[in-house]
């Protein structure tokens, strides 16, 4: 693999209202630094892809955005959400995660019924009105394009669903919380092409009401669905630009090589 100058980067300033932005975020696991100074802005109601080879740090970075790296790694720097630095240890991490949801690489529904999967966290957060619970159940499943498939078996175990359905259930579970931002960590990497395209449709639909940040190793996917794309390489942010531009006219050599398939 070629070596690149990590200081050679191109990051645009986006002139829009930001949903979340990071300022000099660094992550290390013990003595190994995984993410170096990363400052990015994520505009509201857009879809932003994070791309890069495996081990480039894109997932690690994503997990910082709702503090899922607590207890695993040391994260320094500022992460500003609603003018609050949510990386401050004093910030209430549980509240952060209510507004910034996450869907993981492998589907992880609870070993409960479909209904309970969606409603469990809602109830724990103090929603006890039956009508509201049912309404959120239906809406979130509809938004995740799962309602038609499961509306007659809401009380059966979520583990009986197929992998693609399980993943859409996990998305529904997250959006039922009505988050501002949804973080997706390679949500389709374990799924077949049909399920993948369903999830892509869902994500595009969702971005009307929330900001989506998605990690993907699939460049077609990134170019199909996202408005902006950030390219990570070996823990450094190399290039951040409008998706269209980054794929047609990359400014940095490393990005170009990655996109053209030289490594990754």
């Amino acid at each position: 693999m070629k070596t690149y100058d990590f200081n050679d980067n191109y990051i645009i300033d986006i002139d829009a209202e930001n949903a979340i932005e990071t300022d000099n975020v660094q992550v290390s696991y013990g003595k190994n630094q995984a993410i170096f100074d990363t400052s990015l802005e994520f505009p509201r109601f857009k879809i932003i892809s994070l791309i890069g080879a495996s081990g480039s740090g894109k997932s690690t970075y994503l997990r910082c955005l709702n503090r899922m790296n607590d207890k695993i790694a040391t994260v320094t720097g500022k992460i500003m959400y609603r003018n609050v630095d949510i990386n401050d240890p004093k910030t209430n991490v549980y509240e952060v995660r209510k507004h910034i949801g996450m869907v993981f690489q492998r589907p992880n529904p609870f070993a409960k019924s479909i209904r309970e999967n969606i409603q469990f966290a809602l109830k724990e957060n103090g929603i006890h009105d039956k009508n509201e619970l049912e309404e959120r159940l239906e809406l979130s499943l509809q938004d995740a394009a799962l309602w038609e498939e499961v509306k007659d078996e809401l009380d059966t175990s979520a583990l009986a669903l197929s992998g693609g359905q399980q993943q859409r259930l996990c998305i529904a579970r997250s959006i039922a919380m009505k988050p501002d931002i949804l973080l997706l960590d390679e949500p389709a990497s374990a799924l077949d092409p049909i399920s993948t395209s369903k999830i892509e449709d869902t994500v595009q639909l969702l971005s009307k009401n929330l900001t989506v940040i998605i990690v993907t190793h699939n460049m077609q996917q990134a170019s199909r669905i996202s408005d902006y794309t950030a390219f990570f390489h070996m823990g450094h942010i190399i290039e951040y630009n409008e998706t269209r531009k980054i794929f047609t006219n990359p400014k940095i050599k490393a990005t170009e090589d990655y996109i053209s398939g030289d490594f990754g």
Binding site: K90, T91, N92
Partner: peptide, 8 residues
Amino acid sequence: IQRKLQQN
């Protein structure tokens, strides 16, 4: 929301 983020 900001208040809640900063409270226990």
